[in-house]
Amino acid sequence: MPLGIFAFFATLAVISALGVILQRSPVHSLLALIVTLLCVAALMIGLDALAVGLLQAIVYVGAIVVLFLFVIWLLNLERDPEESGRLGIKLLAAVGAAALVGELTAFLTRTHMSQQTVNSDYGSMAQLAGLIFGNYLIAFEVTSLLLLVAVVGVVAVARRWPSPRLANRPPTLSAKPQT
């Protein structure tokens, strides 16, 4: 990926990431998150990981973030009730994050990594599938089990269990709701 395009997407990603954490409205944060995710996907494609980049867009943007949207709707959250105060933790967070970036940057300035030349099928679906259904087959199968467990778990956690009082109520004959 040429440096200019990288710079464009990287800047956009950073700005939108800041948008995620700084905006008051969760929906705006969500929108910013989508932009970040798409930028990251584009950067991935720029790193020859075409299939994974598109999967990132499909899975994250098409599914996971929609879940967030649903929950925001369900809870009917317009704005954060209180985001003021707590200056101490904000300050510490900023200092800590800056230190982290500093440390990692110090690392990166001392390492020199060059891109290897790769085959034309690098990052293709075929290559990915070969690995997933080859070396990583067991992990893949375990993941499918994880998904199943998660589905069951979410239903169990988020379901509105009928209260025992309601369940024990005798069935009504009339359609008139009982008070």
């Binding site: 950073v14 990431a17 995620v20 954490i21 933790i89 904000k90 967070a93 994050a97 982290l100």
Partner: peptide, 13 residues
């Protein structure tokens, strides 16, 4: 690293 740090800040604040 930068995005990670931003995410961390978000979790914190």
């Amino acid at each position: 690293a930068l995005l990670f740090a931003i995410g961390t800040v978000g979790v914190l604040i």
